[in-house]
Design a protein around this nucleic acid. Structure first.
Lengths: 231, 231
DNA sequence: CGGGTACTTGACAATGGTCAAGTGTGGTGG
DNA sequence: CCACCACACTTGACCATTGTCAAGTACCCG
């Protein structure tokens, strides 16, 4: 990295920190690189700090005994992760694995807690971060418990579209099998739902490129007002 | 309440606060009583503070368009709730309803944020609280996505037992239909699973009294090593 | 004592997962 | 540079779990 202090200063979590603090952070931080497929940490492992993404992406996920995955989060540029055990338990509650080549910054726990103690605005930033995570999890729980797969897929697509500037033509940011793990289902089901949506003229799919043909229908499906035809 | 300051001082979230701060808290706090069935707040409502339970219990839950409920949390004595929008959004991400007659303490947002700013240990307590919530949600997501209903019920019973001092004879702390909403299923399914477990000699059920006859089997079911017989 | 709610049980339906087989494609090593 | 292999994806047939609808019983509260 060319300039660690300036990188750290641009992380949303650390915004509003004075320069002195940024330098202290840069001093306690270390970096770590991983190849695609490598584990950052595993569930139950002892945690002595947390990470911030510099380059690449990792998935945070739970594993069932039979090997099915539920993705909790996909971490991208300048997002922190693994911060939960810093404040409560000492162990990671889920697994983290690189889905691309990855460069991470690592912040040791004790030094970071000290920093929070001395800087209330850092504490409030962290509180805001955890609160947002909580809201996001609330949505995930709602989806898994109260909505069917077409509805969850529709929500995902609409969300992608809104983050891509409300465009109707978008490109999936992840593979369809990873998408299945994000939605809490399996690749076969994702395929079938895409097929049904295509048949209904709601979307057009070509590999990872997807066109939202009928946003209105999509919104109805995502909110559960109507459900998708069987066949 | 006889002595607000001493009550507040005994809330885990506020432990380790100096007396002066406790008095400031007592000054900004108000109280609120609700009858069974009354809403504390609803999803999407503007939030200007959070609550701490003094007496009774409330359920925090999401609602599907068809009226199905998923309970996220049951709040009991001296637990805080509704604190998420204090730090991020301005709106409650779920509903809260009294399941018994309830007495609450309310802390307005801005005064509370000021207090956090001035007291790092309060900030760390709050960070620990949100982290624990996050871990709990992680478990809920895991259950909904990766485990079947018998497994979730088994986990619930084992959890109850451990919190009741490892006793084998326990009393459900909630009605079976509320239990269904906690587990992310419906009362009919809970009934059937209890019936199957009884038939297998795993538990004995009599109204709300439940005896865990075969804890070992129950643990196997909860962890997904084995599954329950069909009939 | 009455009424409503909680709970149970049965028959049925449907969502979505499993298993299997086949197609396409991108990356790598010969 | 091409062939091959692994993997991502698709599709079909089948089945299991769980939700829906309906009816009946029991129980608690007023």
């Amino acid at each position: 990295m060319k300039n660690p202090v300036s990188f750290i200063g641009n992380i949303p979590l650390f915004k509003s920190l004075p320069n002195g603090q940024l330098e202290r952070l840069a001093n306690i931080a270390t970096t770590r690189t991983l190849k695609k497929g490598e584990a950052v940490f595993s569930e139950g492992e002892e945690a002595d700090g947390f990470y911030v993404m510099v380059r690449g992406r990792v998935k945070i996920y739970k594993l069932s005994p039979e090997g099915k995955e539920q993705v909790l989060h996909i971490i991208g540029f300048s997002e922190p992760f693994g911060e939960v055990p810093v404040f409560s338990g000492g162990r990671f509650p889920a697994n983290a694995q690189a889905i691309e080549e990855v460069l991470l910054m690592f912040f040791p726990r004790s030094a970071f807690v000290e920093l929070i103690r001395s800087d209330p605005s850092l504490a409030l930033n962290m509180l805001a971060l955890l609160s947002k995570r909580l809201m996001q999890f609330t949505g995930l729980i709602e989806g898994l418990s109260l909505k069917d797969v077409p509805s969850r897929l529709a929500s995902y697509l609409l969300d992608l579209s809104s983050r891509a500037g409300e465009s109707n033509a978008l490109e999936l940011d992840i593979s369809k099998s990873l998408l299945a793990d994000v939605l809490g289902t399996i690749p076969e089901t994702v395929s079938r739902v895409f097929a049904r949506m295509t048949g209904e003229g709601i979307v057009a799919v070509e590999g990872r490129r997807i066109v939202l043909v009928d946003q209105k229908r999509l919104r109805e499906i995502s909110s559960g007002v109507v459900s998708l035809q069987l066949k």
